[in-house]
Every structure is written in structure tokens, then in C-alpha cells.
Computed example of a mutant assay.
Amino acid sequence: MNVHDLTGRTALVTGGASGLGAGMAQALAAAGAAVAVADVQADAGKATADEITESGGTARFVSLDVVDDAAWESAISQTVSELGGLDIVVNNAGVEISGLIVDLDPDDVRRMLEVNVLGTALGLKHAFRAMRPNGEAGNGGAVVNISSVAATIAFPAISGYSATKSAVERLTKVAAAESGKLGYGVRVNCVYPGLVPTQMGMRLAQDVADIGLWPSPEAAVGDVIGLTPLGRLGEVADMADAVVFLASDAARFVTGAGLPVDGGMGM
């Protein structure tokens, strides 16, 4: 028996159109899950779903703004009706806006709070409602929240992002406790990704250079690698494989946990 086999299960991945989310959606599909690629970016989301389908998997694009409660209800219903259920939710959608505390922009912080914290909280809400007994899907399952190494280290210019990703960790633990106490049958865990050279990751390197904290984006990346015991940046596949693990039966007795996938940077 392959404990990582997700055949017969259905997953929804937020922010699934690109970057880490697309990689996670592809990895879940490769493990056998039918995948709802959920995002506000319709064209990119449809392209990712099509790519999964062309590779032999099952996927649909689902329009979802994670800060919209009603949009979550619609996305869950569409996933259940078109893909036959809901067993896995990956709360990946996130926003990172760099800036020094002395220059803090309240609107930037509000945006990160909305997407990173409220978006994850709503994902938990609607995952629980669908997966718990007598829910729309009703077979329990797994939720994987995407935090960040930023929740475990002090790195300049990302105070708002660090705060919101720390909140994701706390949401994970409280949600795991509630699910267990109330008999929902849903495991809840989170992943702390290290820096990955996606569009978001490389924008952070550019931002901290523009602020003047490093002489160049390359220097910033070099220092991150220097702080990482495994001596390299993360790859999308590193994060995606961790999500598959936490969603699978290999993690059947794991809940309320945070899994660092950062090459040792946050230890």
C-alpha cells in the first residue's frame, strides 16, 4: 500500500494558478487527487488546470477570492459537484508587501491581514463545514495551511508578512484542536516554506535591495543561502511534496503540527 496515494480524493488549492500553489496542485494531481485550482487569476488558473489535465490528471479551475465568504461557499459547492467531493484543502493564497516598520503603510498591512489571515480563516471555516459529518462532502479530510519561514525568523522589511504568517500558525493549532474536540475528522497542519525563487520570492529580494538593506537582489539571496544549512534556496517541488505528505495517510496521526521546509534556516 502506498500511503502517499491520493486516488479517489478531491483537493482544493487556493492561489493555485501560479508559483507554489500551481506546484502543489500539480503534485496532488500526480498523487492521484482530483484538484480544484482556485484563484482570482482566471486565465492563469485555467492554464494550470489544463496543464494538469493534459498530463493525465483531473482538474478544474474554480474562481475564488479568498477574502469573500460567499465566494468560498460557491467554490466549495462547485468543487463537490464537479469533482465528486472534498477531502483536502490547501490554504496557499498569500500576499507579501515589503517595507520597514518606520515606513509602515496601514493599507499594505490591512491587505496582508485580509488575504493571509482572513483568507486562511475562511478556508478553515468552509473546509470544516464541508468535510465534517453531515457536511456537503462529509468524509473528513485534511487541511494544509501555508505559513512561512518568516513566522520563525526575524528578517528585516517583512514585519507585516511575518506577523500574518505567525497568525496562520496559531490558526492551524486552534483549528486542529476544534476539529478534534468536535469530531470533525479533519486534520489541520501547516508548512513553513523557505525562500523559493518564484515571482513572489524574487520580488522580495528586489524589494529589500531597493530599500537599501542589501546592495543587490543577488546579495540578499546569497545571504539567505548562507543562513540555510542545506546551502540552497527551496524549490517548488520541496514544498509541494510536503503538502502531499500532510494530506496523505502517511500523516494520518499528525495534526496541529508545523512542518519547516526551509533547509534548516528557521531552526
Rank of each mutant, 00 (worst) to 15 (best):
A242Y: 08
F253Y: 15
V35H: 00
F253V: 06
A38M: 08
M200R: 12
I158Y: 00
G119N: 07
P106R: 04
V62Q: 09
L213P: 01
D50I: 01
L113Y: 02
S147N: 02
A176K: 08
V67I: 14
M267T: 13
D238Y: 00
V102M: 11
G85F: 05
M200I: 14
I88V: 15
I97K: 10
D238F: 00
K46F: 04
M239H: 08
A25C: 11
A242I: 08
V109R: 00
T164I: 08
L122R: 09
W72M: 09
S81Y: 01
T120V: 15
Q41K: 09
T10F: 00
V35D: 01
P106H: 01
R252M: 09
R9P: 01
D105H: 00
T48N: 08
F128N: 11
T152M: 13
A93H: 00
R110E: 15
S216L: 11
N145H: 00
F61H: 14
G135I: 12
L246C: 02
Y161R: 05
H4N: 11
V40R: 09
A177M: 14
K173Y: 07
N134Y: 12
G212Y: 11
R129W: 01
G56W: 08
K173L: 12
F128M: 15
D69N: 07
L213Q: 11
G119P: 05
G16S: 09
V3C: 07
R9V: 05
A130P: 07
V149D: 02
A30P: 04
G138T: 14
L64R: 07
S166Y: 07
D105C: 08
G266Y: 06
Q41A: 15
E51T: 13
S98Q: 14
A47L: 13
L12G: 02
F128V: 05
S81D: 15
A209K: 04
G99V: 10
A205P: 05
R187D: 15
D238V: 08
M24C: 02
N139L: 10
G263K: 05
A38C: 11
A163F: 09
L83I: 04
G264I: 12
A247S: 13
G194P: 12
G180D: 13
S147D: 06
G94S: 11
T10D: 05
A33M: 12
G16L: 13
D249N: 13
G140C: 10
A220R: 06
V95S: 07
A176L: 08
D238T: 02
A130N: 10
A250G: 13
I153S: 03
S55Q: 15
L246M: 08
A93I: 13
V115A: 03
